[in-house]
Design a protein around this nucleic acid. Sequence first.
DNA 1: CTGAAAGCGCTTACAG
DNA 2: CTGAAAGCGCTTACAG
Lengths: 334, 334
Amino acid sequence: MAKKVSLKNIADEVGVSTALVSYVLNGLEKEKRVRPEVVEKIHAVAKELKYKPNLIARSLRKGSTSTIGLIVADISNSFFAQLARIIEDESAKYGYTVIFGSSHEDHSKSEVLIDTLINRQVDGFIITPCEKSLEQIKALNQNGNPIVLIDRYFPEISLNHVVLDNFQSTYSAVNCFVEKGYKKIDMIAYKSSLINMQERIRGYKEAMKDNGLDKEISVEEVRFHHAKSDMEKIAEELFNDLKINALLFATNALSIYGLYAIRKYNITIPDELAVIGFDGHEVFDFFQPPITYIEQPLEDMGKEAVKILLDQIKGSKKTVHVELKHQLIERHSC
Amino acid sequence: MAKKVSLKNIADEVGVSTALVSYVLNGLEKEKRVRPEVVEKIHAVAKELKYKPNLIARSLRKGSTSTIGLIVADISNSFFAQLARIIEDESAKYGYTVIFGSSHEDHSKSEVLIDTLINRQVDGFIITPCEKSLEQIKALNQNGNPIVLIDRYFPEISLNHVVLDNFQSTYSAVNCFVEKGYKKIDMIAYKSSLINMQERIRGYKEAMKDNGLDKEISVEEVRFHHAKSDMEKIAEELFNDLKINALLFATNALSIYGLYAIRKYNITIPDELAVIGFDGHEVFDFFQPPITYIEQPLEDMGKEAVKILLDQIKGSKKTVHVELKHQLIERHSC
DNA sequence: CTGAAAGCGCTTACAG
DNA sequence: CTGAAAGCGCTTACAG
């Protein structure tokens, strides 16, 4: 094991103090008016010794770590995986490193993750908050930690957030159904009090009402941790004796589960049942026919979140709420 | 901003030294025979002040960070996203946190990532090495950093690794084709010198030879950074005038690209063309017919990698090579 | 132009 | 049983 090279080693080698080495290696040679030949010597020796700064030491001294804590619901879900990649790439551009964890929509897991990230002194948080995590987030905020919520937020507190225009997204999906003549439109959503789900449901309901379809409103709720079995039960009710002719899904995972069921029951799309999915997925492309879906602008979402967070870390006091526009990608399932 | 609570605050409050507080909070009260009433008092005050240890300070002092650096090729690829989730979950069980990054199969990006992770003093690395990264990895190893390579490794150096039985996986896929009567079997692989790809290709070739099909051996190579256009070109050659009757894909991404092309050219599976994919993907389930594929034991792969790495971090000197068994999931595309 | 020194928040060998 | 003190590797206000 080659022992680590420290500032002191360079200082000794060059014959100056660690202070000077620190200045030079941090580009403060002009400001501190260090002699050019010393500057050169320091750079040369640093290179020769393959000096790597110890960011842990710097962090302790500076009180900041150039690290972002990212908590998503589940990194193995493609929506979050893509978001994580964008956030990681974007953060790297500004010299920030990402530490991540998945809450699995469980508030105790989320609390453990937040604690871990605090202990690791991350400079800020990007969080997809789960149910019952309001108090944790509130406490985190009150302790002065920069936070950006993503995908969802809590109306009870005013924190930075970046979310989809959830209400509009399902509202326009319903309109798309109605324009094509579908009226018996059901929605499959997660059983969740979170704002993103509630807004998607509200968008569906309002659109139904505005189209005079109050009587047809029906939302099937799936529990996150029992998605498979709940979906099977719903499929049995819904598909055994088909009384609806259109189905709107509230997330990509729900869409996939639903499509498995639709195939199992041999339902023809869109003749027997029109369908609109959420988020986009390769499966939507391969399904016969390709599935129409509500697309989220992932790239913008990730970049905005990082931008806002870095502003906060730099001291900005203003609270920013960003609502990004969905796009309805029309294919042949509706 | 509530100011951070340190050991000193607790020590002052209780009226003891920081040393004692540190002992108690680290469970050394027995060993150090601290008086029970003091132990109790310290715990009480720590709780009251909501003390959170500063892991940065501890890391600097201890010279270890309880942090694992994870470098995958691309976190937005479901294979790596699932692996990342397993590695994260498994590491958390042992009190380790994961810092990750995607190399995008680019050795300069990989080098930057490794430097960042070294600067952050991670205790060890789990890496999916990309082409031309041998020297980086070698240097990393020579500097005494614990490393586990995953998915691929370098035959030139003996490092810990956890990989699939790549040779066997494609060998048995070819046999599966042959058993069903297919003989004109092509393979689509990445143009890569990496061992995983080379072994998958070798498995294909050897199996072809062993079945007396030397003449039919043909491997189409796709460049990672030009996958889409390369695949289109290959599809044109292969599918315009179909001269083969079976196709083996070397990764999940290649499988998906290939299936897009197969659909575009309206090729019937398995009548016109039999297909075997890699890694598994929801698309394989939805394709008509469902796609037969080579499955990797992701759970084992992630867990093994973490286990081996933690052993190394704890000082184990032995080098471990793990080769996990693939499973051929038979559906109806072959 | 440059250096000595303090200090970030811990852990731990040592002394009593 | 307990505390004073050193030290991890940096940064930076201060003094000259």
